[in-house]
């Protein structure tokens, strides 16, 4: 499968501080990927490296096989930066002119039609628009390049729930027929769960979890049973315990299984097995920086259970 975005040992240092370190990931084309992690985990740094705003301090990054910023792929990558910066005192129409003048391929009509469809006043200066409308303008500007890879850095962070929903609808609608690969960073796990089919979880500058959402959800289970004081990793079929909690009589384990389709009755009758949501999985991994799951043989870290 072609990689829309591929990083190997990618790192970026600011002075002595590594904002991103030893990041290896492979984002297959056509995926809609969530980029998740606590503040300072390196999400913006990774996106800036992928779009060519930053150069790597170590390792390599490529989009569609070329270095980001290379004229060959510049037009293939769209970017919506954090806080959706736009020139104040420009109207959406003028921003469309900007897009036309600065890009080889730019669908001006598409941008303006899209905004008209959303009832955004395209002739008013951008600051006169609501936050949600400004974000829509920034998105429409990025989509009008008809990018093959679209990177968005917390585009909905400052929006109210309705504007957030409209933004994500516009995003999904905008790429539905194009097969555009998306990497979208956000803290809003519920939103991500609704639209994303791939997860990149960064923690402290490293990739902690990487994989398709369906696979991840299928691999993880919540086990509830009587108080379990032995090593939870010894339970049959459990590859790793991501999170465990105990009360006086009960133990709850969020585990990664060896087999994504365990047989009914697994692991044994004393455990009640339930499915977990993507949000549960993300929260469990965020709570424990030591746990990790990466696909592919070269990156398979077999990290044991948690403390």
């Amino acid at each position: 499968m072609t990689a829309a975005l591929e990083a190997t040992g990618l790192g970026r240092r600011y002075g002595k501080h590594w904002a991103l370190k030893d990041c290896t990931l492979h984002l297959p084309a056509g995926r809609i990927a969530a980029l998740v992690g606590p503040n300072g985990a390196g999400k913006s740094t990774l996106l800036h490296l992928a779009v060519g705003l930053l150069g790597p301090s170590s390792g390599t990054v490529s989009v569609f096989g070329a270095t980001p910023g290379d004229p060959k792929v510049r037009g293939d990558v769209g970017f919506v930066a954090q806080d959706t910066p736009l020139y104040p005192d420009f109207s959406a129409t003028e921003l469309a002119t900007l897009g036309t003048k600065l890009n080889r391929r730019f669908d001006r009509a598409l941008m303006l039609e899209r905004l008209n469809g959303l009832n955004v006043a395209v002739d008013r200066p951008v600051p006169a628009l609501s936050g949600g409308q400004r974000a829509q303008v920034a998105l429409a500007l990025a989509l009008a390049k008809r990018p093959r890879l679209l990177l968005l850095d917390e585009p909905v962070a400052s929006l109210d729930p309705l504007a957030r929903r409209e933004f994500l609808q516009a995003l999904m609608g905008g790429v539905a027929d194009e097969g555009t690969t998306i990497l979208l960073s956000s803290h809003l796990l519920g939103d991500l769960e609704r639209v994303c089919d791939y997860l990149v979880l960064l923690q402290a500058g490293r990739v902690q979890v990487l994989g398709g959402v369906d696979e991840l959800v299928a691999q993880h289970r919540l086990l509830t049973g009587p108080l379990w004081t032995r090593d939870a990793g010894s339970i049959n079929g459990v590859a790793a315990v991501v999170r465990q909690s105990h009360t006086e009589r009960q133990t709850t384990l969020l585990v990664r299984t060896d087999d994504s389709a365990p047989a009914p009755g697994w692991p044994d009758p004393q455990w009640t097995v339930s499915d977990v949501s993507l949000e549960d999985i993300i929260l469990a991994y965020l709570a424990d920086a030591g746990a990790g799951t990466l696909p592919g043989p070269r990156n398979l870290h077999r990290v044991g259970g948690s403390a």
Binding site: G52, L53, G69, P71, R74, A81, Q82, G99, R105
Partner: peptide, 14 residues
Amino acid sequence: EQGTHRLVWTQDVS
């Protein structure tokens, strides 16, 4: 200061 360099530097023009 306005962050618009991230807008303009991610267009085709170098």
